[in-house]
């Protein structure tokens, strides 16, 4: 029995009430367990499959744990024979610059929008907010064809140039928005004091704003990195050289060529998932922050 503020006495539950409460608790635990299973089993099933020999996969389901033989042969085959090793490297080549470029450019612009004075600053920022909603599809055709008209001989899609620039440009509205909203919460006194001491904007940016904003910058960086790592659409449009395809495209090709070769597909899918999963489990806090920052009030 507990006596709470206000002198209200908590009534001791009757035996019948206690049974109802216990039943309720059981219902809660069972339904939560079911939810956990539904969200875990498909991925685990594919993981188990990626380690089973091809003949086993065709003979029995992955849930046949009494006949479990494990092998890494599928991974060896998909990495070497199916070129997934090269695709993995290509994904890294695409993702790293496509993360670092927007990070730098967004941080600079966000600083200008937060701590510099120039005409139409707030109007320009509203335009950035508006650009958040422009779908990437509007850029496909002009970037592929119109640019060639303007600059003859320009082949942005032969190498990585096209996809780096496209990913960077389309990351800017969100990145500027996110970082600006963080920078603006920094104490004005800190920046004002530096200015009075004669510090330049470049110095304030490098020595004050960036160091104290590491959590926000990291959250945004992780978000952008995973976004690019997992992207298929931009790679379909902006990477035309087959030797430069990232993993998402390699798996999509695998699927259209060997739609029922689950030993290859499962291993391929896990190679694509492994980095995001490591990032998720090791940097969960930043990752969730990055996602939340834009969408929660």
């Amino acid at each position: 029995m507990s006596v709470l503020a206000g002198g209200v006495v908590h009534a001791r539950p009757t035996p019948a009430g206690r049974i109802v409460a216990a039943l309720n608790r059981t219902v809660i635990h069972v339904s939560l367990a079911l939810i956990g299973l539904i969200w875990l089993v498909p991925t685990v099933g594919l993981l188990v499959t990626s380690f089973r020999p091809r003949s086993d996969i065709q003979a029995t389901g992955w849930w046949d744990f009494f006949n479990l033989h494990l092998t890494v042969e599928n991974y060896r085959q998909v990495l070497e024979a199916q070129g997934m090793l090269q695709a993995f490297a290509n994904t890294v080549f695409i993702a790293v610059p496509s993360t670092l470029l927007p990070l730098g450019i967004c941080a600079l612009a966000a600083y200008a929008f937060s701590w510099m004075r120039f005409p139409f600053r707030d109007t320009l920022f509203l335009i950035v907010v508006g650009l958040l909603m422009v779908p990437v599809q509007v850029a496909f055709i002009p970037v592929l064809t119109g640019f060639r008209e303007l600059v003859p001989g320009l082949e942005l899609t032969k190498g990585y140039g096209g996809i780096w620039l496209a990913h960077t440009a389309f990351a800017l509205p969100f990145g500027i928005f996110l970082l600006r909203n963080f920078f603006i919460t920094l104490p004005p006194d800190m920046i004002e004091a530096a200015r009075i001491d004669g510090a330049s904007d470049a110095w304030i940016f490098r020595k004050i704003v960036v160091p104290v904003s590491v959590p926000a910058i990291a959250a945004y960086g992780i978000f952008q990195f995973l976004w690019v790592w997992n992207d298929l659409l931009m790679a379909l449009v902006f990477v035309q050289d087959a030797s430069k395809f990232p993993m998402t495209r390699a798996i999509q090709n695998l699927l259209s060529q060997y739609g029922t070769e689950w030993h290859l597909l499962a291993a391929g899918a896990f190679l694509l998932m492994i980095v995001p999963l490591i990032v998720f489990f090791s940097l969960q806090r930043y990752f969730v922050q990055g996602l939340l920052a834009g969408s929660i009030k």
């Binding site: 939560l32 939810i35 956990g36 969200w39 875990l40 498909p42 991925t43 099933g45 594919l46 499959t49 995973l226 790592w229 997992n230 992207d231 298929l232 993993m247 998402t248 798996i251 999509q252 699927l255 689950w262 597909l265 499962a266 391929g268 899918a269 896990f270 694509l272 998932m273 995001p276 999963l277 990032v279 998720f280 969960q284 990752f287 969730v288 996602l291």
Partner: peptide
Amino acid sequence: LKAIVFIPMSIAATALAVIWKFV
């Protein structure tokens, strides 16, 4: 539980597609 439900958020739609074509 929240982490389990959140895992699919971190993986590519391409991987999601493979997982569910399988299921």
